[in-house]
């Protein structure tokens, strides 16, 4: 079923992107290596299931935990050094590449090198994917609106002041990284058990770029922005497959333009609000007057109480 396939892919991408939204959109750290965490989660979950008969949900969680664990190993020394933001991004880029290269070169029967793992049982269903996605988005929504989330934003906005007001930079950044790695790991497992085949090439830089493009579109300080952007971009990509390389041409332009004109992202600092949307259509005639070049109504300012 083609539609189901699109929906499951969308769900997996939402999970990864929401995880990365915490790291990038809230804490303000960029990563181009999270496909690596996805790979770890996918391989971990599939292998646990294959060799130790670990059931589906537990395998997914274990895959996520493995990704999270690796993120601590790579993240702690990096962040403890107070590595500057751009160094961190570069380090993660290197990490993603290293994971892929290692998987590519492990030519034993378990990992199977570049050929990847075929014959994975189809344990992900449309409903399980939707369910996992909904739960994880709900958790993230709570998290970013909690004290933890506010600390993340403070670090992103004014690192020096945040630290002097008592926010531990290492802990806050590491927690964001670990959670984002966990989310990507779970997404990898969901995808692996749906596609029934994973290979190192499934977790290439292009995928990390897909995530970053989604986030850049979705904007910082927002969960609904990246959520909608993930749906939009993933479905678009599914139907525009023939544009494989052109899409990356567009991504490139997107990064340049957004960074130049609207670095907070196309939908940054806003949350989508259903209430406001309904209100907008109810008061559509009146609003038309106010619409002169502005977006009114759909987007509720983040700064409400």
């Amino acid at each position: 079923m083609y539609i189901a396939s699109v929906i499951v892919t969308v769900c997996a991408n939402i999970i990864s992107v929401i995880g990365l939204a915490l790291l990038t959109g809230y804490t303000g750290m960029f990563s181009l290596g999270h496909a690596g965490f996805m790979a770890i989660g996918a391989y971990g979950a599939v292998l646990l299931n294959r060799y130790y008969a670990v059931p589906y949900f537990l395998a997914l969680i274990s895959g996520g935990v493995m990704a999270a664990f690796v993120s601590v190993i790579i993240g702690y020394p990096t962040l403890r050094n107070k590595l500057r933001g751009d160094y961190f991004a570069i380090c993660m880029l290197g990490f993603g590449t290293v994971v892929r290269l290692i998987l590519n070169n492990l030519n034993n029967p378990v990992i199977n090198g570049a050929l990847g793992l075929p014959g994975i049982p189809k344990l992900t269903s449309l409903w399980s994917a939707l369910f996992i996605m909904a739960i994880l988005v709900y958790f993230m929504w709570n998290f970013v609106n909690s004290q933890y989330g506010k600390n993340c934003v403070a670090v992103q906005q004014q690192e020096v002041a945040a630290e002097m007001m008592g926010v531990s930079l290492v802990k806050t950044k590491l927690l964001s990284l670990v959670i984002s790695a966990f989310y990507c790991g779970v997404a990898g497992g969901v995808l692996g058990f749906w596609l029934q085949y994973i290979a190192p090439a499934s977790f290439s830089d292009t995928r990390s770029n897909d995530f970053l493009a989604t986030l850049v579109t979705g904007g910082t300080n927002s969960i609904t922005g990246p959520f909608l952007a993930a749906i939009l971009l993933t479905t678009m990509l599914e139907y525009l497959r023939f544009l494989v390389n052109w899409r990356l041409v567009v991504y490139g332009l997107l990064y340049i333009l957004v960074m130049r004109f609207r670095p907070e992202g196309i939908m940054g600092y806003k949350e989508f609000s259903l209430k406001k949307t309904i209100l907008f259509f109810k008061e559509f005639p009146q609003n038309m007057g106010k619409l002169k070049g502005k977006w009114v109504g759909f987007w509720e300012s983040r700064n409400r109480n």
Binding site: F139, Q147, K150, S168
Partner: peptide
């Protein structure tokens, strides 16, 4: 709340 008063599992839930 620079040192959050609850753990992050409670926060997520």
């Amino acid at each position: 709340h620079s040192k959050p008063s609850y753990n992050f599992f409670s926060a997520m839930l």
